[in-house]
């Protein structure tokens, strides 16, 4: 009975084609495939894929960072330009103001100079006038003396004459001075 049972079981296994040796052989075959593929395909391929993935991620983050930096820089630049414009305007304003002031100053100076020059010229003219007056008085005295000499030699001695004329001239001078002043 047992023999028959055994025979039957084995027969079924055989009909299904199940053979322990072949089963083992196929397991080994698959194991070989797995290890060969793992060594020659998966390892290099996945390492490269992972590396590339990491690099792409790094690149993306870097690009984002750069973009952010750029934006920041742009903002900064704009700010700077605005500031510079403001400053420039202020400088121009200041310069204008200064120029105005300088102009005024120069004008005032010029006016002052002109005034002083005019004063000087006046003084010079006055001095010249005085000198001319003195000269004329001298000549006048001489002329008067000459006339008196011609008209009055008989009436008065020479010495009297001179005394008289001198006193007369002094008076004249006094009156002239008064009139000038």
């Amino acid at each position: 009975m047992d023999a028959i049972k055994y025979f039957k079981e084995v027969k079924y296994m055989k009909e299904l084609g199940i053979e322990p040796v072949l089963l083992l052989a196929q397991i080994i075959n698959f194991a070989i495939i797995f290890f060969v593929l793992k060594k020659f395909l998966y390892k290099p391929l996945f390492s490269v894929i992972n590396k590339r993935k990491r690099e792409i991620e790094e690149g993306l983050t870097m690009a984002r960072k750069i973009q952010e930096d750029e934006e920041k820089a742009k903002e900064k630049q704009e700010k700077l330009i605005a500031e510079a414009k403001k400053e420039a305007r202020a400088i121009v304003e200041e310069a204008k103001k200064q120029a105005e002031q300088q102009k005024k100053q120069m004008l005032a100076d010029a006016q002052k100079e002109v005034a002083s020059m005019m004063e000087k010229a006046k003084a010079q003219a006055e001095a010249k006038l005085k000198a001319v007056e003195e000269e004329m008085r001298k000549q006048l005295v001489d002329l008067a003396a000459l006339m008196a000499e011609k008209v009055l030699p008989d009436v008065l001695s020479d010495a009297d004459h001179r005394k008289l004329i001198a006193s007369q001239l002094k008076d004249l001078e006094k009156t002239m001075k008064k009139s000038v002043n």
């Binding site: 495939i33 060969v36 593929l37 020659f40 395909l41 290099p44 391929l45 490269v48 690099e55």
Partner: peptide
Amino acid sequence: FLFIFGWFAGKNVKK
């Protein structure tokens, strides 16, 4: 087939 494919595919992987 799998060995040849695997060897060809894995021998020169480039970035």
